[in-house]
Amino acid sequence: MSRYQERVYRTVYRFIGDAEAARDMVQDIFLKVYRAAASYRPDAGLFTWLYRITANHCINLLQKQNRDPLFKAEEPLTATHTAGPSASPESSLLQRERTLMIRRSLDALPRRQKMAIILLRFEGLSYAEISNALGCSVSAVESLIFRGMETLKKLLIEEPSS
């Protein structure tokens, strides 16, 4: 578990943007893995299988709780979240606002689009691997990423102030 928890935690954290909630969710995910261990088939890569459980858990949980987005905008961002410890207060503030804007834009996406983009951008998965994780076809992944990127382009570049 210690070998895999880092990737799972990173994915969950990026998906919900809340460290405390991510900790609980990763534990729940590994309990699901423990429960489903008997159904694991070695022909599917272990990471693919783990990402599938992770993606399902994140998407379904938010669906159930209707807490999308989970990110708390008022959560204090620490030095590593801002421009760094040596940055001026102004640049720290600007960087913080920018980070919040990216976070909110990502949270504005439908859950599956958001997960597809996180797996592609931050975890470096291929479209085929994402299709396994999300349980859909490669062309469906292409479509999810295209639509998600169109929304992000609007929110981050074309009309960032809205």
Binding site: R14, I117, R121
Partner: peptide, 8 residues
């Protein structure tokens, strides 16, 4: 998107 920080 890469500017979005990961966990500390």
């Amino acid at each position: 998107l890469l500017e979005l920080p990961g966990p500390e």
